[in-house]
Amino acid sequence: MIEVQHLRKSYGELVAVDDASFHAEPGAIFGLLGPNGAGKSTTIGCLSGLLKPSSGSVRVLGHDVVRNGVAARRALGIVPQELALYDDLSALENLRFWGAAYGLGGADLKRRAAEVLELVGLADRAREPVKRYSGGMRRRLNFACGVMHRPRVLLLDEPTVGVDPQSRVRLLELVREQAAAGACVLYTTHYMEEAQDLCDRLAIIDHGKVIALGTLQELRDMMGARDLLRLSGTFDPPAAAAALEGVDRVEIVTAEPSLLIVAVEGASRKLPAIFAALAATGAEVRETTLSQPSLESLFIKLTGRELRE
């Protein structure tokens, strides 16, 4: 459905996307996870025809985006990161215009506009000009414009940024519905949890390069099935570190006076041993969190950096 092969996009010296390859299937949500400036929007731009790839190929539904653009874009829906709305027009007028642009018409256009407005919770403000909307309302309408025509391929560029938690849940629900209805969804985000909750497969991208690619389980396996244990309290870092060396298969990730992070296999079974070792150094543990291998930990492992939110 979406095939990206050796995609490269440079702006002069700067290489925004560097030899990226991935493919996304219908009926599933493919995530593109990466920090600011990773090249997510640039990738989406190359898919939507807004940007011309420097090299490599991008195909949507089997059509090359550069050579056969109109055909490739026929089934495309896009929710750009930057708003793309007519401020002077109402929500309804915006939806009808974009819907009609994709070939909806007549009663279907009207029905779908009303339905989508209901879904994003803007039905009661539908006839107001967009310039009177709040930021979050605009975001929701921006989303609505992208799904108006029930696209078979949906590109979503951080659609939930700036949206309140309730609306966010609703938007994510909508994304799942699109995929369930058979759409191929490409979802970019820098929110780890969102990617974890939503995506069937994903690519982690950093500095324009795909550094990890696979299903959530496959990516977790790359972590070597180790859990992450966070302990907060008061520690003597060198002493605590030395004490934990003695516990089987524990790796220190962070050791600070108030925070200790360790990667450990089968953490729940080893907790008593860990607490005992720490107590012997006079450490005081106030809070403990145990998390399964996560994308966060994978990102840290792959790049040595945290993927900040």
Partner: peptide, 14 residues
């Protein structure tokens, strides 16, 4: 500026 040109580019029209 409104981003609508970008969206228009992604339409299946010339």
């Amino acid at each position: 500026a409104q981003g609508t040109l970008g969206r228009a580019v992604s339409l299946p029209h010339d």
